[in-house]
Nucleic acid binder design. Structure first.
Lengths: 272, 272
DNA sequence: CACAACCTTGCTATAATCCCGCAAGGTTAG
DNA sequence: CTAACCTTGCGGGATTATAGCAAGGTTGTG
């Protein structure tokens, strides 16, 4: 029995959640989400980010399933075909699209296989393939590991425009959104020995899994709070606190407060 | 430098061979052949079966390559898209199409993976996948191994229509083309202890690789000649000769004459 | 309020497909 | 005669597709 949702300022119309849709269409929720990342559907979301599907979405997905299972078309082709039928519009390519293409380009230049890079970076082959095809998104930790592997700056995944000037005003900062709720603003770039960022971290957002790399890191809490875990030891930082540690120590962090946290974060050497 | 071919009763027009086309399009000859089996191209052939491509074919294949590499569409989708553009017509599904679908159905019914069946039958996963999708064709030996694995009659791959009557006239025989140049006509079928065939083998056609299975086999040369090899020992048969052997002995055969060879061939138990 | 059943994101393991090359033997064209 | 091509049948490895899971949050019902 589908749950009835009503959105504010929209007409009362039955919506379905992803599990309901999966059962009706005959594919798993994972597949529906991956088709969404290709642009097949654009479901609205509740405030807690639950996806909401309409009856039209279900019809579209059923047709997609038919094209997939019976006609053997892959997802990219299904989107193309349905776009030509005026029934679908492709996903807006943002930074995510650029990241993926750039990753594949870096790997192709080095004539490396997916397996080779995945092993070196300790992620699965399928995940790396999906990252390169912009079908999955990676956490800060994962992108950093990839940047390190390719001996490149994490910024290069977004926009490579030479070195910064000495003075960088707020509006001039290079901005990158790495993972949900984490916004990185680079304060200096180019041939620098230190890599300074300003992190803006939404409540509950963080680095994802524990990770490690070479170098040293210094961070200063400008506002809000942060929980950082090193080797299973937890530290609760608040505005005015600073923190210095070796990057080789396994670590992960998260904003446990109710407001956005701002961090000044410097690491050396830079991730190049 | 493209070789210039002129077909009888067609206007002089430059044709290309598959290697030339592969270089111009930027994919390998194997890929061009596999796209052909899906219906992307329908090249004419010389008497010795060399494929001949036109400039239109090259353009079509270049577009296919673009759709594949840049847009990420798979081959089935490319054919569908180009068909909709009126630029391609799908492959005529013959027995090959039926065999593939049937193989996949048998595997699905038993809830087996490609890897599981491929291992049991000693072929590769990719090859079995291609067989099921009618993208590659198998030799007599391979089809027999699969029939044995699924405990079914090789005939069931073609047309299952119950048992034969006692008397079977030539026009009533079940006919199956198994591999190039080999035509099998079944002389009795259904619940039989023996499985009699009439094989019509074109010059140079044969069983392909050596193979083995349980049972006993008897064959009689009606016309033409046949070379059969058992455990690396060769036998040259001609009209009137007969031959009896245990199927467990590794064997392979071939028509080494200049004319079509007709064989009466009985094995027991049937491949069920 | 408790809790079952759902959702989220990030990621894995496995299944399936795609690509290209090779063996064996035949053909072409210089 | 021979190098370089073709044929078919098939393998090995690379890549993609699918479904599930962990950890943690949300929903809705009793």
């Amino acid at each position: 029995m589908p749950v009835r949702w009503t959105m504010k300022s929209s007409r009362a119309e039955p919506y379905l959640k992803i599990g309901d849709v999966a059962r009706r269409v005959g594919v798993s929720p994972s597949v529906i989400r991956s088709w969404e990342s290709l642009g097949l559907t654009h479901p609205r979301r509740t405030e807690s980010k639950y996806r909401l599907y309409t009856a039209d979405d279900v019809r579209l997905l059923k047709r997609a399933r038919f094209l997939r299972k019976v006609r053997g078309l892959n997802a990219a082709a299904i989107v193309e075909l349905l776009r030509r039928e005026g029934r679908a519009r492709p996903a807006a390519d943002g930074n995510a699209g650029a990241i993926g293409s750039h990753l594949r380009q870096l790997r192709a230049q080095r004539k490396l296989s997916l397996a080779r890079v995945a092993r070196a970076v300790d992620i699965s082959v399928g995940f790396l393939s999906a990252l390169e095809r912009s079908q999955m998104s990676g956490s800060v930790g994962t992108l950093r590991k990839l940047a390190r592997f390719y001996k490149t700056n994490i910024l290069d995944f977004f926009d490579a425009t030479g070195a910064s000037s000495r003075q960088v005003r707020p509006a001039q900062r290079k901005v990158l959104e790495a993972g949900p709720g984490v916004r990185m603003e680079l304060l200096a770039w180019g041939n620098t020995v230190m890599e300074p960022h300003l992190f803006r971290v939404a409540p509950l957002a963080g680095s994802g899994d524990s990770y490690t790399h070479e170098g040293e890191e210094f961070l200063y809490v400008l506002r809000g709070e942060l929980m950082i875990t090193l080797e299973k030891e937890e530290y609760r930082l608040k505005a005015g606190d600073s923190f210095y540690f070796e990057s080789a120590t396994p670590h992960q962090w998260k904003n446990t407060g109710r407001a956005e946290t701002w961090l000044l974060w410097v690491n050396t050497p830079p991730t190049f």
